[in-house]
Each structure stands twice: as structure tokens, then as C-alpha cells.
Simulated assay, not measured.
Amino acid sequence: MCYDVTALTFKSKKYANHLGLPTESIDEILKKTPPIYHSSGFSHPDLPVVTDKDPDVFQLFEWGLIPPWVKDAATSVKISNTTLNARGETIFDKPSFRNSAKSKRCLVIVDGFFEHHHYQENTYPFHIRMKNDEPIALAGLWENWNGKNTCSIITTEANPIMAKIHNNPKASETHRMPAIIPKEFHKEWLKPIEDDLDKKQLLELIMPFDQEQLTWYNVSKLRGKVYLGNKPEILEAKIYPELDFTS
């Protein structure tokens, strides 16, 4: 799954350059948005996205998709905690996501993401980012509910290293990772769906990402009393002497 990210930090204008977009919209976001060194999805931060409707500008959408059929604020809060992620295999079937899958897709642009590794009844967070220090474009869905734009991050089957990191023994499903869209397929992800062939080609983009393009390392705890908070130090590597990650 993907419940923790870092965004809008040291990458700044690389976001725009990475996607070949004008820098004006990202400049405006950076002026009024503090960096996200770490945020949990359950705090529903605003994340930078590029949508199929406005592919030439960056916008900030709240993390936690609220479907259009939600009737009241209380229900919207409840459902937004269950729609931080969307399983790629079922986005065209699930009521919360199928409308967005057909006509409201986006790229969620992050610096990196975090996953927790379970070892001897303790959890150890890893930070995952691109080896080449480029931003990561995650497959996303979006929706507008009562004038508020919201989004969800799509997940897929984990590659070998992500399966090793994200090894929750209590998980009832196979190991997952966020669906990273390679740079050469960004436009394909955002293009309209005209027929079943388009739908099939879109689903083929949701696949485990090549781990050779990623780097990963342990960081300080993201929960509890020792949590450092949304600070640059949260991205610093940390050694846990008791952790054996080789076995």
C-alpha cells in the first residue's frame, strides 16, 4: 500500500521539467505550500497532481478520493480514509473508483514514498525514491466533490524489493506498491478512453516498477512519540542495529 509520502521538497522545479511543463503553476504552488517531508495519507494532505483535464498545469488535490455519490460531510470523511489507495486491478469495477477510472485520471507527483518493514514484531520504515533523483509520477484517480478536488493513489503488485520491504504478516493480500508510471507513458495514462482496447492498454500501465531504478533506505520512525514530524531530518538515513534485512 502507500500511506506515507514526501512531496514538494528538494525537487521544486524538477516537477515541471520532469513532465515537460511550464513552471508557472508549480511556482505558484511552491509560494504558498510548505514542503511535505513526510505526511501520512490519513491526515489528508494536499498533493501536487497533473490531471487528464488540465495536463499542462500542476494543481493541489486532497489525498483521499470522495466519490460523487457521497451525500454528506460525515460520510465523506469516513470514505476518504478508505480511498487513499485504489487497487489497479479493480478500478473499473469498484463503485468508489470506476467513474474516475473512466474519465478522471491523474499523475500524483511525489519526491518519494515510505513503506514499513516488519521484523521480530517491530516495524521499520523505509524511504523509497528514484536513483536518478527525479520526481516519481504515481498513477492516480481524482474526483470533485462539493467543489473540493480529491485524489487516490493506485497500487499494483509489488516488485521483489518492495515485497521484501512491505512484508506485513497480517496482510490479507499479496504485497503491494504504488503504481509508478514511467516518464515515456505519462501521456498514455492521461489520454481519453474511447474503447475496450484503450482500457486494456491503460491497465497494462499498472505494473510493478523496475526496482533497478529505485533506491531505498531506513529512516526514523514515522509514528509514535519518537516521530520527528514534518522536518527535513525525517529523510535522513537511520541505522537500526537490531534489524537484519538480509534474511
Rank of each mutant, 00 (worst) to 15 (best):
E173G: 06
A237E: 15
T82P: 00
F10G: 13
S39H: 04
S103R: 14
P67A: 10
K53E: 11
I66M: 13
A237M: 08
A137W: 07
K238S: 01
E233S: 01
Y240P: 02
K31L: 03
P55C: 09
L203S: 09
N85V: 03
S12N: 12
G88R: 11
H18G: 02
E89Y: 09
W142H: 08
K78D: 10
N99V: 07
R223H: 02
W142G: 04
P48C: 07
Y240G: 00
E115G: 01
G64K: 13
M1V: 14
Y119A: 07
V219S: 02
E121I: 05
L21Y: 11
I154D: 08
D93F: 09
T23D: 04
I193H: 04
L19E: 03
N218H: 15
I161S: 01
T174A: 14
Y217S: 06
M162G: 04
S96R: 08
D196K: 14
Y119K: 06
A73W: 02
K71N: 09
K71C: 03
F113R: 04
P125T: 00
K164T: 05
P208V: 15
D244A: 12
E62R: 15
K238W: 00
E89F: 06
G112S: 03
D133S: 04
F185D: 05
G229E: 00
E89H: 07
L235F: 00
F92E: 01
W63Q: 03
I109T: 15
K191P: 02
D54Y: 14
E194I: 12
T215L: 02
S40P: 03
M130W: 03
E134I: 05
P35R: 07
I136V: 12
K191S: 07
E173A: 01
P232Q: 06
E188Y: 12
D46W: 14
K131C: 06
P67F: 09
K225R: 10
F58A: 03
H127Q: 12
T51S: 15
T246P: 01
K78T: 11
P241Y: 12
P192H: 09
I26F: 09
L203M: 14
K104R: 15
F92D: 03
N81G: 13
K11V: 09
K199G: 03
E157S: 09
I128C: 02
S96K: 11
H117F: 02
P55K: 15
V70F: 14
K32S: 09
R129N: 04
K94E: 10
G41R: 07
S40V: 00
E115N: 10
I154F: 06
T90N: 15
V50E: 04
K238T: 00
V110L: 06
I91D: 11
N122C: 13
T174H: 13
W216H: 14
G229F: 05
K170I: 01
E134T: 13
F245W: 08
T82R: 13
A171M: 08
H116W: 15
G112T: 09
E89S: 05
A163H: 12
G64W: 11
N17C: 07
G224F: 00
V110G: 09
K148P: 00
R87M: 08
K231L: 08
M207C: 05
D56C: 06
K191L: 11
N99A: 10
Q59W: 02
E184T: 14
D210L: 07
I128P: 00
Y227F: 09
G229Q: 05
S25F: 14
V50Y: 10
